Amino acid sequence: GYDPNALYCICRQPHNNRFMICCDRCEEWFHGDCVGISEARGRLLERNGEDYICPNCTI
Score class of each variant (00 low, 15 high):
Asn56Tyr: 11
Cys9Ala: 01
Tyr8His: 11
Arg41Thr: 07
Leu7Pro: 06
Gly36Met: 10
Asp51Glu: 11
Glu28Phe: 09
Ala40Tyr: 07
Asp51Thr: 10
Asp33Trp: 04
Pro14Tyr: 13
Ile21Asp: 01
Cys22Ala: 13
Val35Asp: 03
Arg18Leu: 13
Tyr52Leu: 09
Gly42Val: 12
Trp29Pro: 12
His15Glu: 11
Arg25Gly: 07
Asp33Asn: 04
Ile37Phe: 07
Ile59Asn: 15
Ile53Cys: 12
Ile37Gln: 13
Cys34Asp: 03
Gly1Ile: 14
Pro4Ile: 06
Asn16Ala: 06
Asn17Leu: 08
Cys9Phe: 01
Ile53Tyr: 14
Asp24Ala: 14
Trp29Gly: 09
Phe19Ile: 09
Leu44Pro: 13
Trp29Phe: 14
Asn17Phe: 05
Glu27Asp: 10
Tyr8Met: 12
Leu45Ser: 11
Arg12Ile: 02
Tyr8Cys: 12
His15Met: 14
Trp29Glu: 15
Cys54Gly: 00
Arg43Gln: 12
Asn16Lys: 09
Cys54Ala: 01
Ala40Cys: 14
Cys26Phe: 00
Gly32Val: 08
Asn56Phe: 01
Ile10Thr: 11
Glu50Lys: 11
Thr58Asn: 07
Phe19Gln: 12
Cys26Val: 00
Thr58Val: 08
Ile53Ala: 12
Glu28His: 07
Asn5Gln: 07
Asn56Ala: 09
Ser38Asn: 04
Cys23Trp: 00
Ile37Glu: 08
Leu7Met: 13
Ala6Pro: 02
Met20Tyr: 03
Gly1Glu: 15
Arg43Val: 05
Ile53Phe: 07
Cys11Gln: 02
Pro4Asp: 15
Ile37Ser: 06
Asp3Val: 05
Ile53Lys: 15
Cys9Tyr: 01
Gly1Met: 06
Tyr52Gly: 03
Leu44Trp: 10
Ser38Met: 13
Gly49Ser: 14
Ile53Glu: 14
His31Leu: 01
Cys34Val: 01
Ala6Thr: 08
Ile10Val: 07
Cys34His: 03
Ile59Leu: 07
Asp51Ser: 12
Gly49Tyr: 10
Arg18His: 13
Ala40Asn: 02
Ile10Gln: 05
Thr58Ala: 13
Glu27Met: 07
Phe19His: 12
Cys34Ser: 00
Asp24Gln: 00
Arg12Gln: 05
Phe19Ser: 06
Glu50Asn: 09
Ser38Ala: 08
Tyr52Glu: 05
Glu46Phe: 05
Arg25Ala: 14
His31Tyr: 01
Glu46Pro: 05
Glu46Gln: 04
Gly42Asn: 15
Asp33Thr: 10
Cys22Leu: 10
Asn5Arg: 04
Tyr2Val: 07
Gly49Cys: 04
Asn17Trp: 03
Pro14Val: 12
Arg41Met: 08
His15Tyr: 09
Met20Arg: 08
Asn17Gln: 14
Cys54Phe: 00
Ile37Thr: 12
Met20Trp: 03
Cys54Trp: 00
Gly32Asn: 05
Leu44Lys: 12
Pro55Ile: 06
Met20Lys: 09
Thr58Leu: 14
Glu50Ile: 06
His15Arg: 13
Gly1Leu: 15
Cys11Val: 00
Tyr8Thr: 15
Pro55Trp: 03
Cys22Glu: 11
Arg25Ser: 09
His31Thr: 00
Ser38Thr: 11
Glu28Cys: 09
Cys26Arg: 00
Ser38Lys: 05
Asn16Leu: 08
Glu28Ala: 06
Ala6Arg: 02
Ile53Arg: 09
Asn17Glu: 06
Phe19Arg: 06
Gly36His: 07
Asn16Gly: 14
Asn17Ile: 06
Cys34Leu: 01
Cys34Trp: 00
Ala6Ser: 02
Cys9Gly: 02
Arg18Phe: 04
Trp29Ile: 15
Asp51Lys: 04
Arg41Pro: 14
Arg12Ser: 11
Cys9Met: 02
Tyr8Gln: 09
Tyr52Ala: 08
Arg43Thr: 08
Asn16Val: 08
Tyr52Gln: 04
Arg12His: 11
Cys23Ile: 01
Phe30Met: 10
His15Leu: 12
Leu45Gly: 08
Leu45His: 14
Pro55Glu: 07
Thr58Asp: 14
Cys26Gln: 00
Phe19Gly: 04
Glu28Gly: 11
Arg25Lys: 13
Asp51His: 05
